[in-house]
Structures are given as structure tokens and as C-alpha cells.
Amino acid sequence: MMGVLFYVAAVITVVAAIMAMTRSNAAHGLIFLIVTLLGIAVLFFLLGAPFAAALEIVVYAGAIMVLFVFVIMMLNLGEQARAREQSLLAFRYWLLPSMMAGVLLVELLLVFNRGLHPMAVETVTPKAVALSLFGPYILGVELASMLLLAGLVGAYHLGRDFLTKDRGRSQ
């Protein structure tokens, strides 16, 4: 039963990812990306990581995707941009990227081709994760907080419109 659920969720995840990368409308691609993230959350849950599954939905499919939706709404991409994206999805643009990604995928599959190891799926509890996070990994947590602070300051700086004014003055 668990195995069937895993494979169904895996197929939905990968198909939605391919759909997300080949849409010409950014909003449609975003919807498929959200389906991908929800599928990954199901995979996490089946792999015995319920805490990671909840965070995947709350932070990824919730917060980060809302940022994308806000930006797409603010930019209001028109029909012209959609037509341009459509023209960039012709087969001759597909060929080289799909070949390169395909070669990488074949290499990965060859690495995995050494025999199968069964997973004993024990649920790793949030308590174990927290003990590990605030024990041996405490330095990483501090560095992550510094990274988030840098991201906050950077996003605030980039979001201001003084760069545009400065450019207007220099011309």
C-alpha cells in the first residue's frame, strides 16, 4: 500500500514539474510548481519525515509560492510576453537542454544501478530533529540566521526604487 502511494505521488510530482517548466504563462507554471511541492510533501511523509512534510507545505507551498504570486501579480505580464515565451518553446530550443539534462540523468541512473537497499521506514520524530539541530548543528543554525538577516536586508535594499531615480539622473 505504502509502495503504491509512493509511486503514484512520485509520478504526479515529476509530471507536474515537467509541466511547470514548459508552460508559457508564468501563473500556470506556478500552479504546477505548487502541485510538485505538494507531491514532494507526500513523498516526505511516506519516507517517515512528517515534520519535513509539514514544513514543505507551510514554508514552500505557502510562503515562498505566495512571494512568486505577488511578484507575478505586480508585474502583470501581458499577452505579448506570453507570445514571446511561446516562441522560445520551439523544438529547436528544446533539443540541447533536454540532451544535456538527459545525459546527466542517465549517469545518475547508472550510479544507482548497483542493487537495491530496502528502507526501514521508521518515523524520525520532530524531537530527534530538534535535538540534532540544537546540539551538534547549532553553528549551522546561527549561520542560517545570519543568512536570513542578509537576505532580509538585501531584499529591502533591492525593493526600494532609488536605483531607478539614480539611473534617471545619470542619463
Partner: peptide, 30 residues
């Protein structure tokens, strides 16, 4: 969830590799 799962680790890694390759493909295409 203590029952042994019928899914080997390699299949989960294959799904991870597929997702990574689809992302790489999209990054090069778009």
C-alpha cells in the same frame, strides 16, 4: 509506520534525480 516499506532507497533517489534534471532542463531552456 513501522511496517517495512516496499520502496527501495534507490527509487526515491531516482525521483530526486529526475526532479533535479527537470529543474536543470528548465534552467537551460527558459
Amino acid at each position: 509506520m513501522t511496517a517495512a516499506m516496499a520502496v527501495p532507497m534507490e527509487h526515491a533517489l531516482v525521483v530526486a534525480g529526475l526532479l533535479f534534471c527537470v529543474g536543470l532542463f528548465g534552467l537551460m531552456l527558459r
